[in-house]
Design a binder for these strands. Structure first.
Length: 334
DNA sequence: CCTGACAGCCCGGGAGAAACCA
DNA sequence: TGGTTTCTCCCGGGCTGTCAGG
């Protein structure tokens, strides 16, 4: 039934995109100077998850690569490479300048200096989940490099700027902004229809099946594609030639869990313990949480470190922290 | 009380220098 | 002398104490 599994993967970049014509056209026009070999102002893409930000950005960059001969590009996911060093390393890697860089014993500012010295062909850089970047000063440094064309992706614009980042704020004040709104159910269904056409056997899923998935995905294309993938696999394993409605219903929860699992798997054992305690409890106050945590693990970290972990879990949207002052409550998501 | 920003400490580990050895 | 081992230096990154602020 599955004819091309890649199409059902999250990372797949389609050769044509739907329902984002205005965004695509606008982004293309912004990047127009690059086709002439000139860098351009930073661009900020923001909007809810699963709204196509990453996909569109990569799609545009692929198109550019097709039409511009001398062009360097790099995609960095700042969730994975969240430190200054790692991000810079990826950026240097994109222009083949990272071969002799090691974590240690590289002079402190060599990476940023080397990137600054670069003024060869245009260099278009996508920084995804840029709000996860630990050191926002890096953005400031990157903005000042005129040869770099930056595409920054974040969920909400405010998350990118803490009130204190006045320098960064003024630097990005006149950046181009593209706002992505959530997909409607019909749009999701039609995206799924394409994926099914490219990746599944003919008639493997009905229109009502696609609509059913779209209804459950709540405007998040990532979730929708995850459900489709899971449903196709399950139907395959059970030897069906079509994805039946009951199979879809069965895998919805599982597919959503799988997406959350991907996030959780990146946590350290201690962070996972905290996450489990909070989800098991539903909601819990800080002292009780720490108490339970230190009873669970062998060598508990200090309260201060646990606070760091909790901030991280909240940032990842795995938990909710209610109440900013005393009487804070940590609770499980939704 | 609890948080979050800040700064200092320590650890692991790579590179190059220094010491060692045949 | 040339090759090998050890030492020293330095870095990033994780952890933690402190402290102002709500």
């Amino acid at each position: 039934m599955i004819t091309d599994a890649r199409v059902l993967q999250q990372e797949f970049i389609p050769r044509e995109v739907q329902h984002r014509d205005s965004e695509v056209n606008y982004l293309s026009s912004i990047l127009e100077p690059v086709t002439e070999g000139n860098p351009t102002e930073p661009t900020l893409l923001y909007g809810p998850s699963g709204a196509g930000k990453t996909c569109i950005a990569q799609y545009i960059v692929e198109e550019l690569r097709g039409s511009v001969v001398d062009l360097n590009t790099q995609y960095v996911n700042c969730w994975e490479d969240y430190t200054r060093f790692k991000t810079l390393y990826q950026l240097l890697d994109g222009i083949g300048q990272a071969y002799d860089i090691h974590r240690q014993s590289t002079p402190r500012d060599l990476l940023v200096d080397r990137l600054r010295e670069y003024n060869d062909t245009p260099y278009v850089v996508i920084l995804d989940e840029v709000d996860q970047l630990q050191d926002k000063d890096l953005l400031y440094d990157l903005c000042r490099m005129r040869d770099l064309t930056l595409i920054l992706i974040a969920n909400r614009e405010e998350e990118l700027f803490s009130p204190l980042d006045e320098r960064l704020h003024s630097r990005l004040r006149n950046a181009n902004r593209v706002h992505f709104t959530q997909y409607g159910n019909d749009e999701i269904a039609s995206i799924l229809r394409d994926r099914a056409r490219w990746g599944l056997a003919e008639n493997a899923i009905s229109s009502t099946g696609l609509q059913q998935i779209a209804d459950r995905a709540a405007g998040d294309a990532r979730v929708a594609i995850g459900i489709l993938r899971k449903a196709a696999r399950t139907a395959n394993q059970e030897g069906h030639s079509r994805i039946r409605s009951d199979v879809i219903a069965d895998v919805v929860l599982e597919a959503k869990l799988e997406i959350e699992r991907e996030v959780i798997d990146r946590l350290t054992p201690h962070q996972k313990t905290l996450y489990n305690i909070i989800t098991d409890a539903g909601e819990i106050a800080p002292p009780a949480l720490y108490e339970q945590y230190s009873n669970t693990v062998d060598e508990p970290k200090t309260e201060r470190t646990v606070r760091n972990y909790l901030a991280k879990l909240e940032h990842y949207n795995l938990i909710v922290a209610d109440g900013n002052t005393k009487a804070r409550i940590y609770r499980a998501r939704s």
